[in-house]
Design a protein around this nucleic acid. Structure first.
Lengths: 244, 244
DNA sequence: TACGAGTCTTGGTCCAACAAATACAGAGAA
DNA sequence: TTCTCTGTATTTGTTGGACCAAGACTCGTA
């Protein structure tokens, strides 16, 4: 196979290596991006403009653009056009979402331990970045637990709360990992809980965490958040053992 | 609920509910693959057959196929048709071969912060689980840095060292995440280093970490490991600024 | 049975057109 | 002047059709 030259590909100016027309356009687009020094947020020319510039049909340009989109390098919005982005990590995780879920499902405890690591042990960083806006939005999200109609909806709110919490870190890699694990996390959250449990216990636990953050009480934050995570895990363990 | 049922749920949850016609076809294709139980090597229907089956135009089907190709899930050969494959690992590496763009800087800093969270802040857990066998294997891996022939090989050893380190945690979820991030981590490790750097500085830093573990000196472990990670990040920053 | 020419099929590419959405400019109102 | 509404033009999304090149296939022939 000719595509075995990944090492060569690492160098910017890969040989023309004339492949299909779409591959040629992809190469030209990459060259365009690097030579123009385009950064995240910058716009690419319109599709029709790229057609004349690369002397290719619009379909060919579109297929090339699909590849760049799949690679998480550009984002295309109707009427707006294509803009440079960098969601490669998220794409990489999506690629392996099947594997990750497959393995992780065998050990939910791993995911829960992972969450403890991410959420509780980054407390200092969270408090560094914490702003009033974060607190307000966390309370707003948690308030939604009052209106939930079923467990599915409740776990979505619960998940949103924790995502908003770690979003304070401003680390996209962590957010990407969370989105991959979302299905597993939702199931953990639902285990052993009722709609009523979410509306009372889960709500109160979240409020306790927010209060600790508002008071800049890091120890209380760690203690309450860890307890909150443990509760979910305990519910899950009980049900698992009961089933087995 | 059977486990098979859960599989389907997880997969569907991972996919966007609605979207463009191309996204719909992508979803249908993935559904087709999983429901037919197609394995690597099996053939997909022809493009024109997919058009009538999914009630979409050929261009739409082709764009959807481009996405699956970019994801490394199918391989298309002229006159042969599309066959199921699994080049996801290779694709993941290709994702980050696009580099040299300033684009990726945030990704790299995020990953490095993530590694700090995983490796350094789980110190207590690592020391809980630590066994002599772990220390011996870590030393064995690190010793390989003496025989490296090029930077590529060196970064593989470096990566193996850190994977072995976190494997002490016994958390498969974390190991999965690391395997996905491997391409990025390798590139971070290679930045600003020479073969010589790996054989001296990196080797010594790793030995220092192992020594701290052997002495059950948690503070030294955290300090040295964090410094080690920071060195990699500093190399990366320097190169980026030098280029810009 | 072996072989070879002709036909069929299939992916690759291009073209033209329409739909849907919206950025933008210009008219009109406060 | 400034704001708002509206119409137009532009851009992406999607469709259907067309042609090409080349491997796959058929079938008659030796």
């Amino acid at each position: 196979m000719t595509d075995k030259r990944n090492d060569v590909d690492l160098e910017l100016n890969a040989l023309p290596a004339t492949g299909s027309a779409v591959d040629v356009v992809v190469r030209q687009l990459r060259k365009l991006i690097s030579e123009e020094g385009l950064k995240v947020g910058d716009s690419l020319p319109t599709e029709r403009e790229l057609c004349v510039r690369f002397d290719a049909s619009r379909n060919t340009v579109r297929e090339a653009m699909r590849i760049l989109k799949a690679y998480g390098l550009v984002e295309v919005r109707p009427k707006i056009g294509a803009t440079i982005t960098d969601n490669r990590m998220a794409r990489a995780f999506e690629l392996f979402s099947f594997n990750t879920m497959e393995v992780s499902r065998k050990s939910f405890t791993d995911v829960q331990a992972f969450r403890d690591l991410i959420e509780v042990r980054s407390a200092d960083r969270i408090f560094e970045e914490l702003q009033d806006k974060d607190l307000a939005e966390l309370r707003e999200i948690n308030a939604n637990l009052a209106d939930i109609r079923d467990i599915q909806e409740a776990s979505e709110v619960d998940y949103a709360f924790h995502v908003r919490l770690i979003s304070i870190l401003g680390n996209n890699a962590i957010l990407d990992v969370y989105s991959v694990m979302k299905p597993i996390i939702l199931r953990i959250m639902q285990k052993g809980k009722t709609r009523r449990t979410f509306m009372t216990e889960t709500y109160d636990e979240h409020e306790g965490v927010i209060d600790a953050m508002a008071a800049r009480d890091r120890l209380a934050f760690e203690y309450r958040l860890r307890n909150h995570l443990m509760v979910g895990f305990k519910n899950f363990s009980d049900e698992m053992e009961g089933k087995a």
